[in-house]
Design a protein around this nucleic acid. Structure first.
Lengths: 233, 233
DNA sequence: TCAATAGTGTCTGTTAGACATTATGGA
DNA sequence: TCCATAATGTCTAACAGACACTATTGA
């Protein structure tokens, strides 16, 4: 190693700026919405940005992301996962060289009322964002869709008991595409993820739906073959 | 937002330390090996660590990861992707609060000879590492296996032309499990990822194998259903 | 000739998607 | 009664995994 002149990183990069940015999502009716706040620029034009703040001295990344999320939302999100670090030189509102992005999910209704400087936007109608944050948003949505079948993300957006139609609706919202009802339920049944309760919910007309709860059972990992997905095209 | 006392991240977090760490992998026979270098501690005991260095002033993350990889390897890896940022308070050799980990793949033979302070270790026989880096290694291998069917990672470990048995061997190395020959080739054929060349390679005894090259064709995205993988168990 | 590796054909069990049907409430 | 939604049954095409078999080289 030729490049290690200093023995301490803390000494070598005093001036490195590090920001923690949070992409907060919540369902709003049939749409997925994202929390943005007004930029505090001298500019008269209305500008929006992802909630962010500088990492504080001695603070861990999870602690910082929770702090930023709580400050913007007024409460804690149901799930907070890191997306990635971003530092390709794109402009960040805080002038940060490197920003670590987090994805937060908020159950429907919980955080829909936020303070004056923040507001929820449908994800397909976002205003212009600082270049560095625009990249984070895209990465967050991509990561969300990639992780949805690897971790119980969808259940974080629902109340403890829910109907299967509600669950499917959340999956469709997060994936951004429609799912087949019978296939969805068959896969759900095979995965032993939920169990029925004794309750039924009647909403408007139509047959009442049975309520389920999230109750994952141990399951042998079924790893079927190589898929080669997304490699071409 | 209550927490934004300062308008500039650069001003607020002068003392934040940021390291860039690189997990470099190369096949070594039938095993996957990782590049580690000797720690420069005052300790007499032999200690090993992932190649890392502090992010320099104004340097982008991709540039820093390339620099660290080149310094350790003597040449550039065939692929260098970010894993994630790590800053949960675990001990890092440079005392960094936050470290961004990268995964680098090196074709077989290219980087097998490295300088005096670095050495390749089979991934299931790694020496003890600093806690922060041990977490990175596990995350790198997990990410590798998750991404292998989403990006052409495996082809980066092979020469431009290769036999299908070699390709399958790389997949088995990266996934850490055996694959079924006929199924592997069927899936490969269906994905239109490779095309045969006119050349054949004879190695030792046995029927010579036809050489292929990586040549992805456009393909309609086949997204089949919801899998619910990894959600339980 | 045998051993070793490459490459292919066929069968079977699983499952996603389509479609149809029944069930059960409200208007 | 009609309509909307829930829930389930059946059929089919796709496909993974297993197995067997042929092909082609070196020893």
């Amino acid at each position: 190693m030729r490049d290690r002149a200093s023995t301490s990183v803390a000494r070598a990069v005093r001036r490195t700026a590090l920001s923690v940015d949070v992409v907060l999502l919540t369902p709003h009716g049939r749409r997925l919405t994202m929390l943005l706040r007004r930029s505090s620029t001298a500019d008269t034009r209305e500008r929006w940005e992802l909630p962010w703040d500088a990492l504080r001295d001695g603070e861990t990344l999870p602690a910082a992301s929770t702090r930023v999320a709580r400050a913007a939302l007024g409460t804690s999100p149901a799930l907070l996962e890191q997306i990635a670090a971003f530092g390709e030189g794109r402009r960040h509102p805080g002038g940060a060289t490197v920003a670590v992005a987090f994805l937060g999910l908020v159950p429907a209704g919980v955080g829909t009322v936020v303070g004056g400087t923040a507001s929820w936007f449908p994800i397909d109608e976002l205003p212009a964002l600082p270049p560095a944050q625009r990249v984070m948003v895209d990465a967050a949505l991509t990561a969300l869709r990639a992780r949805i079948d690897q971790s119980p993300i969808a259940f974080r957006l629902l109340s403890p008991t829910f109907t299967l139609s509600q669950l499917q609706e959340v999956y469709e919202l997060l994936l951004g595409r429609r799912l087949h009802k019978a296939s969805f339920r068959r896969a759900l049944h095979a995965a032993w993820l939920v169990e029925p309760t004794d309750e039924w919910r009647s909403e408007g007309r139509g047959r009442p739906a049975q309520l389920y709860r999230y109750a994952p059972r141990k399951r042998r990992a079924r790893r079927r073959g190589v898929r080669f997905e997304g490699l071409a095209g």
